[in-house]
Design a protein around this nucleic acid. Sequence first.
DNA 1: ACTAGGAGCGCG
DNA 2: AAAGCGCGCTCCTAGT
Length: 600
Amino acid sequence: MTTATLDTPLAGAYVHPVRDHADADEFLDWLRCPRRVLAVDTETTGLNYFDEVRLVQVGDASDAWVLDPSRHDWLIEQALRGSRRLVAHNAPFDLCHLARVIGSSAAEHLELVEDLGRKTFDTALLSHLLDPRDRSQGGIGHALKDLARHYVDSAAPDGQEVLKDRFRELGLTMSTGWAEIDRWDPDYVRYAGLDAIITTRLFDAILPKVLARGHEDLVEFEHQVQRATTAMTVRGMAVDRHYADQLALELDEERRGAEAEAATYGVDNVNSTAQVAEALTARGITLTEVTPSGQAKVDRAVLEALDDPLAQAVLEAKTASKALTSWVTPILDAANRDGRCHPRIRTLAARTGRMSISGPPLQQLPARDHRVRSCLIAEPGEVLISVDFSQVELRVLAALSCDPRLMGAFDAGLDIHSATAATIFGPEFTAAHRQVAKAVAFGIVYGGGAATLARQAGVDRLVAEEAILKFNRAYPKVRSWSKGLTSSLAWGSEPFLKTPTGRRIPVDTGTEYRSVNYIIQSTARDVFAGALLQLRAAGLDHYVRLPVHDEVVCSVPAPWAEEIGAEIALVMSGTLGGVPIVADFEVCGARWGDKYAPKD
DNA sequence: ACTAGGAGCGCG
DNA sequence: AAAGCGCGCTCCTAGT
């Protein structure tokens, strides 16, 4: 007697729960049929690394089999190891969880994500190559449902919606439902299985599109990059929990003190901008800046400029609570199982292809206050080092624009901002001149104007205009190249850029000026991603703990820190379009924050 | 109870 | 002529 197959709202899609021996036999028969790819998906109690796997689904375009990992881990292992090709949507999540279903030690988990990863396609990567924008940016989005509706079937069911209703029926919520719903609830199983079927159909629909666009090399490249970062997730980064606990107490004290101070001025919630604005106004302060929606602006810059005790207290309270709620507490939560953070690393997150890290957001820890970074530590007997590209975006600008003077400066190994200052202001330039030169370069890279430059560099508007003019004269091809770039956008219904690696970046109409930044940022990202693969090829990737846009954070044996740092920097270095790309390393110490700590 | 958008803030 | 770019996350507020 086999368990009944479940019908689905999707035509020709059938879901088979695997509950008894007969089901398992049927599944094994099905598994023996040849198919190009096997789709895999998991249902878990939550989105965190150590959350429990409740169901594992494998399927093709018409059938999905839903398995209980606590009972049929051997079947799951057989299906995964026996398949030539796998496909998953956001594969790192599923592979990490599947590795923990099948493997029993951290070393085995690593080996499993490597072995399975080598034969896995990720539809989220393919989708990003076709259109990198998420829904809020006017794109299709990258959720399985969004993609299925766009590329497969406009009537594709929304499992999340159905399950939300089902949870409610059962007295559960979206936060408790995933962990508490009965494993064999028919709706839960039906939509779990359906996701594997939809993933297969999505893959079948978009791989040909990606290849037709000539992205074959990028497909391979991105999957390799993803494998490199998934290994980083599995290895994780060690946390000093005792130190972090202490820091949490310290920050909480700071927050409470500053909040009490703010309360004496009538502000009982420092996070309410409306309340802060009102209290400041009551003190006779006129707030001049406004937000896009017209409210009074009370951000850090505004408050600092006020030099007012209330503003001071609000700043202190917000800084402390931000550190606590955004970083220290999340780091402690993430590390509560094995003392390590295993963050999610999205290798293609931004429109430009830049990576993002979440859970916790380790790319965004404060650099000025070393205390938060100090929660993260090297392996026993090791030190953390950081190896970063020097001025990589400006080097990319030089390579893309082919400006002879800019290229020449990098080729000669000059300090680029000093070189620019010398050209603009003459050989007698001052430190302030260098600052202006640096700000102009940033303005070019970000597509800013004179007004922003004036504000950022703290100079007069006329001075800013003059500096930009002189920069353009110094590096004439930078200007001609950017003009050509923005005016030559592929026009059609959707204007887009093509980067040197062939990446396609949509540019919103009306914001064409962003093209320069997009292509520079995206190219720099690809240089960085390429460096990660170089490290892997050189057998140095096992040291790497995190990618941070233009820098890798590595844990290396303390006695060899200098040697390994130099080796990693060398492997990351190279050239782009004739411009040297240079990486430098710095030894932080046992704690990441040691690099930022005041020395005495 | 849950969602969406704005504001703010940390990083590169 | 003018336009600073890209993220993740938390808190607040208003709306359903």
